[in-house]
């Protein structure tokens, strides 16, 4: 779609609001999703699926599954295991329908020198040796840290981004106006902007999507990691956990005392990035050995 054919973001929001949702999309933020009558939400999602079919020529399922009670998600990544192979980066791109061109990667892997420790002033995301790991280096993959005290949501003027009850920080693309305040507020560079309409080869689109996650995005909105909300709310591991060849990525319910994640927090050396900013990440880094 070229720019002239495509209605602007604001126009789209306005007309969508007028067309099928004057009655549905009245509040903003989580209220809009969780306090509207179920049948109205279902109707607007059905309308969304119809529009995707029209635009992409493909059946896309958009789930609106809410958080499970008693579940608060957390992630842990074993820095002593990660070899920097970037399998997680591309597994994530495929699962979550990230634009191939312009390129969007929700995960960025930084190569760091063992001598200097975890230090972003000496980190290189563009390393490209024939084989990894490289002598004297270790690797720190960084995506959204799903902060419990997220600076990104506080600055959003439209209430388009918020933290869910299970700890996942989400974005409603229909309410994002693309001001990018959240990108400036995020201390981890976790948010990415669609400067152009995303392009994904049709046969590579993942049709299994969630409203607040990997459904196809338009030009002009911000996106980021959602702990694979479309998978994790069904009880499955995120895609990066399953694709990592060294098993460095661990995921689960931090409220469950028998979970892998609790075992790690209770038994291993654990750190969070930029702890001094008090963002309270739910993404932990640990050393298994």
């Amino acid at each position: 779609m070229t720019d002239s054919e495509k209605p602007s973001r604001r126009m789209f929001t306005a007309s969508a609001g007028a067309a099928f949702a004057g009655m549905v999309l009245t509040a903003c933020g989580p209220k809009r999703l969780y306090e509207v009558p179920q049948h109205k939400l279902k109707a607007s999602i059905a309308e969304m699926e119809r529009r995707y079919k029209e635009q992409l020529g493909k059946d896309i399922q958009v789930s609106d599954q809410g958080p499970m009670p008693g579940v608060h998600f957390a992630f842990a990544l074993d820095i002593s295991r990660c070899i920097g192979c970037r399998r997680c980066v591309y597994g994530c791109v495929a699962e979550n329908n990230q634009s191939r061109d312009p390129q969007i990667h929700w995960i960025r892997v930084f190569s760091m020198e063992k001598e200097k420790g975890v230090d972003f002033t000496h980190a290189d995301p563009y390393y490209n040796p024939p084989e990894v790991p490289e002598e004297g280096h270790f690797y720190v993959p960084v995506g959204c840290q799903q902060c419990e005290n997220p600076p990104c949501t506080k600055v959003c003027p439209t209430g388009a981004t918020w933290a869910e009850k299970d700890g996942i920080v989400v974005i409603d693309y229909d309410w994002c106006i693309g001001c990018r305040y959240c990108m400036a507020a995020c201390p981890y560079g976790a948010r990415h902007f669609n400067w152009k309409a995303p392009t994904i080869p049709e046969n590579e689109i993942n049709p299994h999507t969630h409203y607040l996650g990997n459904r196809p995005r338009p030009k002009g909105v911000v996106e980021k990691c959602t702990f694979c909300i479309q998978r994790s709310r069904e009880g499955r591991y995120p895609a990066c956990v399953e694709v990592c060849p060294v098993g460095a990525r661990k995921f689960g319910n931090i409220l469950d005392p028998n979970s892998e994640i609790r075992y790690i927090i209770e038994h291993k050396r654990v750190l969070v990035l930029k702890e001094e900013l008090n963002t309270v990440p739910r993404f932990f880094y640990f050393y298994a050995t």
Partner: peptide, 15 residues
């Protein structure tokens, strides 16, 4: 660590 799910790769369901 492997038994606890911390060493090695697991696939499937977190719960």
């Amino acid at each position: 660590d492997w038994r606890a799910g911390v060493h090695g790769r697991r696939t499937g369901n977190w719960n």
